[in-house]
């Protein structure tokens, strides 16, 4: 029973998880009519492309202000890291840590994780396939959590709207930040974890 579906001429429908007798190229699932391939086509190329796009977006997302705070005529624009600094100054360490992890560590970690996975398919040294699969799960799971800062800014902008006294508006950095999060999610979705196991001989 130590066989993979590929070696037995079978393939799994990615939508309804039915085992299909597989011929070649494009295949239509016998149960749910989804068209699919034995492996996601050009999976590595797509993953690399989305990851690079995300990395490029990471730069303006951190350099441009994401929130513009106006109090009695004073305009104060803050970037992601600037906002965290304010929390630290106020002594709110738990929130500072949550925001720092969600909007800085997680996006960078996802990009790094994707790079490790792509290199892993080409069989670099180091991690085992099992650990790489775990890494993929983590990257996939973390996907939406970086949207945290976008939601916070949206809420703050709507709530803090007290006429000319105090108001908060979203800044241009938020657009790049959202794009970056969406790009990393596309990258994780284009990756095919089965590629990590294909070169392995299972006995």
């Amino acid at each position: 029973m130590n066989k993979t579906a590929k070696s037995e001429g079978l393939s799994l429908c990615p939508k309804c998880y039915k085992a299909n007798a597989f011929v070649t190229g494009r295949h239509k699932c016998q149960r749910c009519n989804a068209t699919f391939y034995q492996r996601k086509p050009r999976s590595i190329e797509y993953t690399i492309a989305w990851t690079i796009a995300a990395l490029v977006m990471f730069i303006p997302a951190n350099l441009m202000p994401i929130m513009v705070f106006t109090a009695l005529g004073n305009v104060d624009a803050s970037t992601i890291l600037g906002g965290i600094q304010t929390f630290l100054k106020l002594g709110m360490y738990p929130v500072a840590i949550v925001v720092f992890i969600a909007s800085f560590i997680v996006p960078l970690g996802k990009i790094l994780g994707l790079v490790i996975l792509v290199l892993g398919v080409r069989k670099g040294p180091g991690l085992k396939s099992e650990q790489r699969t775990k890494l993929y799960h983590v990257v996939e799971f973390l996907g939406p959590w970086s949207m945290l800062d976008v939601f916070v800014v949206a809420l703050m902008a709507a709530v803090v709207n007290l006429g000319f006294l105090t108001s908060i508006e979203a800044g241009p950095g938020i657009t790049y930040f959202t794009l970056m999060v969406v790009f990393t999610m596309f990258a994780a979705e284009s990756f095919d974890p089965r590629l990590l196991w294909d070169s392995e001989k299972y006995e």
Binding site: K3, A5, R194
Partner: peptide, 16 residues
């Protein structure tokens, strides 16, 4: 094989 087997979506292993 189609009816009696399940395939792992993560690593493509074939099991009964």
């Amino acid at each position: 094989k189609v009816h009696e087997h399940i395939i792992c979506p993560q690593c493509d292993l074939l099991s009964r």
